[in-house]
């Protein structure tokens, strides 16, 4: 589905980002150049402090690069945010405890002014998509952590943004739940054809999910390696025992080592 002829959805050229802190300036990102095509699943992996979350937040216009150019859908990130180009999933589900699951999912739709009928229709559709069909009337505390995170993904999908940005969405979940959600996320990506940016610090997760793996290293945050995955789009869980999978995982580890990520 990757379309090389169309312009990239997200394009970074020489991005630098310096935070001014009390201890002086901190270089969070240095010389990041990257193009992400339509329908790609791109993982950002690296140790904490490597700038992977900062870069994702820069795409979402939640942080502002101090140098270089960054475009999303051909616009500045700020304009893309205003035109609601992306859905963002945070590490914590962050559901409102005073809203039901359906109420939470329709939150962005209310803010964006969808009609009542359309809201109900879309909520039903995306809840089915994340396998939470019968849970619309439940409150968040009645759901497990994994189900809450699925609801937050539904919330990000509800308004049809082409881009899905996910910041360690499964980082707080146990490995069994995480495996299942990874599988479901791949299925969802296949069904919707969205462009996904995914931050993680799990090597198997990055290799299993991605069409492109961006290995980053810290101080200053920069790209150590970009790996195009040769794995097919259809990926059963046991693909993780195949030689190709292990080879890519090895290359990710090499990239992390080269970037002094293990120091």
């Amino acid at each position: 589905m990757k379309d090389m002829s169309s312009p990239p959805v997200i394009e970074a050229k020489g991005i630098g980002l310096i935070f001014q802190t009390d201890d002086g300036p901190v270089e969070a990102l240095k010389d990041i150049s990257l193009a992400i095509g339509r329908g790609e699943f791109v993982s950002f992996i690296g140790p904490s402090g490597c700038g992977k979350t900062t870069f994702l937040r820069a795409i979402a216009a939640l942080e502002h690069p101090t140098s270089g150019t960054l475009t999303v859908n051909g616009m500045s990130p700020e304009e893309a945010r205003r035109s609601r180009a992306y859905g963002y999933v945070f590490q914590a589900a962050g559901l409102y405890p005073w809203r039901t699951i359906a109420g939470n999912v329709q939150l962005p739709l209310e803010i964006m002014g969808f009609s009542r009928a359309e809201r109900a229709e879309r909520v039903r559709k995306v809840l089915d998509l994340v396998d939470l069909g019968g849970f619309g009337k439940k409150f968040p505390w009645q759901l497990s952590g994994g189900m809450q995170q699925r609801a937050s993904i539904a919330r990000a999908l509800a308004f049809d943004a082409d881009i899905l940005l996910m910041d360690e969405p499964f980082g707080a979940l146990d490995e069994i739940v995480r495996d299942r959600l990874n599988e479901e996320l791949l299925k969802l990506w296949n069904e919707t054809g969205k462009t996904i940016g995914f931050v993680t610090h799990s090597i198997p997760e990055a290799v299993y999910l991605s069409t492109k793996i961006v290995v980053m290293s810290p101080r200053p945050g920069r790209i150590a390696d970009v790996i195009e995955s040769p794995l097919p789009r259809e990926r059963p869980l046991d693909i993780r025992d195949s030689p190709e999978f292990l080879e890519i995982a090895h290359r990710v580890r090499e990239g992390l080592r080269a970037g002094h990520a293990y120091d």
Binding site: L62, R81, F90, G94, I111
Partner: peptide
Amino acid sequence: TMQLDLLKTYNASRFG
């Protein structure tokens, strides 16, 4: 911050 950022990604107004 996360909850405020979430509403920012929806481009919500201050009143919203």
